[in-house]
Design a protein around this nucleic acid. Structure first.
Lengths: 141, 141
DNA sequence: TTCCATGCAAACACTTTGCACCGTG
DNA sequence: CACGGTGCAAAGTGTTTGCATGGAA
């Protein structure tokens, strides 16, 4: 599978480096992670990897469609691997919990946006903020 | 209407200052604006207003429900006044154009999220990224 | 006359860039 | 052995904070 990756990269004129692979594996194993978290994970395997290398590689990997990012907080973006089925995120503003929801749940919305506005929605990047069941219960008991 | 605002602020222990009012009026007149753009607009009326004052006031005004923000780019947030009907945003990744869409267009989605996940979505904060009709046409002619 | 609000400058968090060296293909 | 990749340090953005002063109520 490393050779697969190598070919994938070569196809766009990129090379496979140890750091590159470590960044990809870190994103895959973390699920949802900010660049900082990816850096921390990578450093567990290879001590000396630089922040800028992480940023540069996340960019390359996203360009190739191997990872994606979404904004789960007002601050840092979070990356996830694309082997997952397409999904979007619900984020509870109160407890910060994140739930992944299959893209098909939004199909009526994407259909209307396409029909009424000619707009092709990128559901994988979507984040819906709001309040989860538990937190709503606590606020109005 | 200034007195209205004064009372609204006083109700939460805040005061009405010229800067505060200028920030609110700027958001109202700009439609969608980043803190930077709000600052620029405010300075057209009163030369010396500080960045930090703009940030602090946007925060207070949002707490009171007089303005809202959404993330229309990966960088700065944009603020808009709440007198508008509730809406969410479509942002085209190619041309950066922004379209506002009435919250009711997402009602099937919000209904499903409520039923299936107990999640109350905050539609006013939602931004859907994707590709608009014109840009899709240019890419696949 | 009491506190909230402001200006200013410094600190912050996150990300990007320039440059010399390194290593993949 | 050419050219993309890396580390490092410095510079950018966008935002927040501490503190002394100012002004609304």
């Amino acid at each position: 599978m490393t050779d697969d990756l190598r070919r994938r990269l070569a196809g766009s004129g990129y090379r496979l480096t140890p750091q590159r692979e470590l960044v990809l594996r870190a994103v895959e194993s973390l699920g949802h992670a900010t660049p900082d978290e990816v850096l921390a994970e990578v450093r567990q395997h290879s001590s000396a990897v630089n922040v800028s290398t992480v940023y540069r590689n996340l960019e390359v990997l996203e360009e190739l469609g191997l990872v994606r990012h979404a904004h789960l907080s007002d601050r840092a973006p979070t990356y996830h691997s694309v082997t997952d089925h397409e999904h979007f995120h619900l984020v509870c503003r109160t407890c910060r919990r994140v739930v992944s929801v299959g893209a098909e749940v939004a199909s009526v919305l994407t259909g209307r946006l396409a029909d009424e506005h000619g707009f092709t929605a990128d559901i994988g990047h979507l984040t819906v903020f709001g309040t989860c069941a538990e937190c709503a219960r606590e606020e109005n008991p």
